[in-house]
Design a protein around this nucleic acid. Sequence first.
DNA 1: CTATGTAAACAAC
DNA 2: GTTGTTTACATAG
Length: 447
Amino acid sequence: MSSYAISYNSQSDWWNQPVDDINRLSIAHHCRSDSINGRDYPLQQHSPEGDPGFFAPSQANGIFPSNQIMPNYWIGDLPQFNELSMSFALQSPQAMQGVYTSQFVPSASLPPAAFSKEPLPIDQFSSGDLTTFDDTAPNSFYHNIHILPLSDVPALEYDSTSDELAYSRRQWTDSPVPDELHTLEDTDEADDSLENSDPCYAELLRQALMEKEDDHTMLLKDLYEWVRTHSSKAQDPSNKGWQNSVRHNLSMNAAFERVPPPNQEAGTKKTSYWRLTKHAVDYGIRSTTRYRKDSKRKTQRNPNPAPIRVQAGAKGGQATRRSVRRQQLAASPLNGISPSSDMTRQRNLRRPHQVHQHPSTQVETSSLQQRVPQTMSTNTSYFNSTADMFSLSNAYPVDNKIDETGDLLRPYVGAQPYLDWSASPSPMDHVASEAGVWRMDQKNMGL
DNA sequence: CTATGTAAACAAC
DNA sequence: GTTGTTTACATAG
């Protein structure tokens, strides 16, 4: 029988992952075909000294266990991984049937920040990352993975004390197969089950305020609480700045206006209420960035910022990077579980986010409430009615936002949600269009 | 380039 | 202390 290696270059930065000797390297193979069974095509480690086209069983494990967790997704586990370069093979005892695409996703337990990639959306595969097989193709292929020593990975800046606690349960051995992968196929959630990120703060705040159907007004404290219970941003114990971010968005985004409290309760509440502007209620919000001054007038940026500002900004940026890495890890199907299994949150996390821009799309979030008469107890507004609120002597919005007259009516076009490969209605169509791009090396085919 | 998230200074309560 | 405003920077896309 002939076994052919099909080597294709992955984007190198995508594969370069740091590993140290305490880590386990998990290899996930995503594959779009119901006819592929992971047990039939176990991962094998390439023999380091072997023939480039031949796959020897791993010395450590023999054939890697391929735990099929759904028809087109399986995982190989390589404990105590300490090689710096390694190839992995998917090898079949018989010819593969059908056409499918595949993608390897390396992941590992620790350190969390440097590992773990989601499968790329299928339409974002480079031709080198996309492998297409049909029954005329060779029946095995391998990936080459180059592992960088930890010391060579500058991206590895994270607070090990907090992250280790936060992510300890994500170690491979502690991570059972995530439920969503079992049920991925026939649920409505399948499309975005790998999409795991929160809406941005501005959108979260809009949603919170939209729940107050009367006046769309809340106190900062309650906005905190809403975000805490509806977002993962506040769940991460190492993210201490989310309240700051909430305030930042309230302050910067013109969709939110500050309404001074009624002054009749002298000496009690001094803090303002936050209200979603009527325009934002009607037309949705726009990005907070839109309102940043230096994006509007570039000349306004200080050419010589105070060092203290520079330092703060740098720290902010680095924290953002850590945050993104956390998000990526949290979104990885391999991490299995998120620290909290709260289902409300899970549902929220699955929803691809997009800045809300028109009431026609708000039906989905508030259709339930809309059925409820407004006199019912779901009304927890701070004001009995909109009229009451506006009748307050000093309940005027405090305008600290950039004037954007005329601009407001222009619809905000946010980034289109990317086409997740799992959301591709017909992935094989895409395969067909890509199939011509990828070429097998005829020399290796042994025909 | 824009959008987002973060930090932090600083002012005002 | 909390609330609010602002400027700064890193990163993803």
